[in-house]
Nucleic acid binder design. Structure first.
Length: 220
DNA sequence: TGCCAGGCCCTCTTTAGGGCCTT
């Protein structure tokens, strides 16, 4: 085994052993405009298996509008008896530790995670991956790249409600594993290291196939 | 009552504009 290949396997194991898939429900789209988290859901993936889960509603200290109530199914009555964002996010920060992180449209969840942790005087330690960016490259024929559409497109069993944090995190994890498996099968790769994912999501769609073919030729 | 953001990514592009995706 070459040193290069050994390093890639080690890197892949590090990623697999530490990734946390998360999803926020929020009062709106922008923490910079004062929006707050109202629910966090997450699953811990270890070697492709969900080994732990985290789910909690949190009281943002204000009423949410009817659009958010209808969109998420989370009501003001539910939030009125929920613990504070401070309490929930403190527990969640301990849950994720220094793990690498994954979300569908990660830029959105990363902004809220950073904003909520900043209120606690804490910060994100792990590195984010984005299932949306990867899906846009490897499922170019999908009708669109919304989470629900991709779950349906790949015939992944979905027994629950989209737009609730834990369910969306579970579905994102399933989609992620499906994408890694499809990449492995399509290009004959034993594992998909984090460095390859990072390169993939920065590669123009038209050049993705060539990159993977060249990578597979190099590693195999 | 209606609207609000930010990053990615494509194209009729790069001195820009607009759709997608997240709540």
């Amino acid at each position: 085994m070459t040193i290069f290949k050994a390093l890639l396997i080690k890197e892949a194991l590090v990623l697999a052993n530490s990734i946390v898939v998360l999803d926020f429900e929020t009062t709106g789209l922008s923490p910079d405009q004062g929006d707050r988290a109202i629910e966090i859901g997450a699953v811990k993936l270890e070697n492709g298996i969900v080994t732990d889960r985290f789910q909690a509603l949190m009281n943002p200290g204000r009423r949410i509008n009817s659009f958010i109530e209808n969109y998420t199914g989370i009501s003001n009555r539910m939030l009125a008896v929920a613990p504070t964002c401070t309490k929930v996010m403190t527990e969640f920060a301990d849950f994720i530790g220094a793990s690498n992180l994954l979300a569908h449209n990660a830029a959105f969840d990363a902004r809220f995670l950073e904003a909520e942790l900043a209120r606690l005087g804490r910060q994100v330690c792990g590195e984010f991956s984005c299932s949306l960016l990867l899906a846009r490259r490897i499922y170019q024929d999908a009708p669109n790249h919304q989470l629900g559409t991709l779950i349906n497109y790949k015939n992944i069993a979905a027994d629950g409600s989209f737009h609730r944090a834990l369910f969306d995190a579970e579905m994102t994890a399933e989609l992620w594993l499906m994408m890694l498996n499809d990449l492995s099968e399509r290009y004959g790769l034993d594992n998909i290291p984090f460095s390859l994912i990072k390169r993939l999501v920065k590669t123009p769609k038209a050049k993705v196939d060539k990159l993977l073919i060249n990578y597979a030729a190099k590693i195999n």
